[in-house]
Design a protein around this nucleic acid. Structure first.
Lengths: 222, 222
DNA sequence: CAGCCGTCTTGATTCAAATCAAGTCGCGGT
DNA sequence: ACCGCGACTTGATTTGAATCAAGACGGCTG
């Protein structure tokens, strides 16, 4: 199955086969349709989630009920370590942005494994460090870069490279992508249109073709 | 001296005395005047920093040279674990926002300690998990909350509580606080003025008195 | 293949916050 | 004390993105 995807993830490369086997044993996969809510904000964190296929959105709700997407996790990504290790409730909910398969790893197994296997602890530290950096990057994005540049950066990180050119799959709803980027769907739509007008990309439904990735990143007016 | 501050920090409570002694041995304190740059973005991460006194700002610069403050660390806080454990360059610089005393912990000592002492690894995981949550919180703030609410939340987290009322010290420059909150100094200044007009706080130079913390948090029009 | 519903786009308008531009304050130095 | 300078405030204006409001598209379903 996707066992190879798991094995090759940066996390399990560091954690090692033993830790992997140990975590996988009590775990189970779950299939969820687009739109399904995997867990709610403020719930007890009983599972770690490893995305096997599809995209999952971490959705935070503020006191007034407004929602936003904090991060989008794709295949091979392990998330939710913080609530599990701190034994605190989730501070965001998660929804399936596409049909997904997710491996559910019991929190208890993870905590026990971390206490006994230094390689697993080490992998966890590295994972958290990377995730922290991603969030810092997002904060910088939101504070410093205008909508268009955020879109360009997001897209370029999704392009499957082929000598500068390539295309990005955006299977998740525009609303979710817009929220992840800190803008409204309207703004995202207009921005994409503008870039298309500038010849920076060509929109083809769920796929977006990028003729020149560097130009996409550079070519920001002003 | 400040050894008690260190010992009582959430990090060293979990890491334990042994790890603490081990880390402190090769470390040294440094005194820096306000405005001093502690290290630059993209430099090699040779030290972990533990703030002994004062405030340090994590400052990120984008490609166009614009700067922002990603986070402000105060006394007792340990930061920069990510670059140290990943052995990657700093992705932000740090400047002293006030006169500061910082304990410099050699990266090598930390990495070695983590490999050998599970309690230290555990403490590191928890620290990173907390820091990740802080960044998530900031992202939600930036995406969902208007300037005024961000200011209110920031202030209320700084109030030294005394039965609902209290006061917050803001020794760092307004510019840095504004940048941390993702707004310009002008907007911060106006927001503060507006809140003062509503009787939510009283500004007294570097200190700000908050008669009713809950009201500050709640009383956001709309 | 017609009809429908949800998703996305397009357009007009508003608004929060940035920018530009002077002041004013307050503090360290002589 | 007075000066000078950086830090902060205040004011006027602009602007990027949000909001409000229809449409168009596309993909299912019957």
């Amino acid at each position: 199955m996707n066992i190879d995807l798991i094995r090759r993830s940066p996390f399990f490369v560091v954690a090692g086969e033993a830790a992997m086997a140990r975590l996988l044993r009590p775990s189970f996969a779950q299939q969820l349709p687009r739109g399904a809510v995997m867990f709610e904000q403020d719930e007890q964190a009983d599972f770690l989630h490893l995305v096997l296929a599809g995209s999952v959105g971490l959705v935070a709700r503020d006191e007034s009920g407004a929602e936003t997407v904090v991060e989008i996790f794709g295949a091979g990504e392990l998330f939710l370590v913080p609530p599990v290790v701190l034994q605190l409730p989730y501070l965001a909910s998660a929804t399936a942005l596409t049909d997904v398969r997710v491996l559910m790893i019991p929190a208890e197994a993870f905590r026990a494994g971390m206490a006994e296997d230094p390689a697993l602890a080490r992998a966890t530290v590295e994972l958290l460090a990377r995730h922290w950096r991603l969030m810092v990057d997002q904060v910088v994005d939101l504070k410093l870069r205008p909508a268009e540049r955020r879109v360009a950066r997001f897209l370029s990180r999704r392009v499957s490279e082929e000598a500068g050119a390539g295309s990005a799959e955006l299977p998740e709803p525009r609303t979710a992508i817009a929220a992840r980027l800190g803008m409204t769907p309207e703004t995202l739509s207009r921005t994409l249109k503008g870039m298309e007008g500038d010849g920076l990309l060509r929109s083809a439904g769920k796929r977006i073709d990028v003729p020149d990735r560097d130009r996409l990143l550079r070519n920001q007016k002003k």
